[in-house]
Nucleic acid binder design. Sequence first.
DNA 1: ATGGCCTGGGTACCAGGA
Length: 259
Amino acid sequence: MKVVTWNVNSLRARIERVLEFLEVHSPDALLLQETKCSPEQFPAEELEAAGYEAVHHSGGRWAGVAVLAPKGHGLKEAKIGLDGEASPDQARWVEADIESLGVRVASVYVVNGQELGSEPFAQKLQFLSAMADRAEELADMPLVVGGDMNVAPLDLDVYDPSKFEGATHVTEEERAGLRAVAERGGLVDAYRQLHPDEQGFTWWDYRGGSFHRGFGLRIDLLLVSESLSGEITSCGIDRDFRKGTKPSDHVPLIVELNR
DNA sequence: ATGGCCTGGGTACCAGGA
């Protein structure tokens, strides 16, 4: 079983790269974030022509999340939105069951937070708290929560921590909020479990040649139930999708399990 | 000099991203 999370920074702008990804990797589940489309604009026909169906929570020009699975895998919408999030209309959480695999997956796009002390930052902490509540509710089922957490869990996950003093994404409050999601949901960070000491960035700023200079962050995670974590055989990114024509600023993060 | 780029909306430039 191959499960992938990818912040595509607009599904319509990225549709050719997404179709390329489906062709190259044939994922059993592809969790997308920042689809940036209204429900009417969601490119269901193009995905269906590639053999995939989708469950999505689409909120217009901002945010938007989706789960894609091959037709015939038994993809079923399970929950749209998160109880207790500050702005439910922002389209940041969607859950789906994949019946043939016996797992639930959730695609999440955590609030960015903008500036420390801002209203969006308070909403970010509230969102992480709501996510932890939901993870605890789902703790008994095989679950993969994948997405753009907008938090770098450790200083190891930041190319230069000194450049992030006073910035979002690295504060102890945000990191504690993210740890609570994993702890209360009985989830493990798949990449970190397999690669305890490596830097494995998933995002690089479009500006200034950040990708080629290695100025990145690891903010996209796949959180896997402890009951499944023994089945993980690999976890890593595909750097090719940060190269070439019109890349997203995030790369796909891929986990493979014996299932 | 603290930015540089990219997206959608809409057709000039702005909000938001991280």
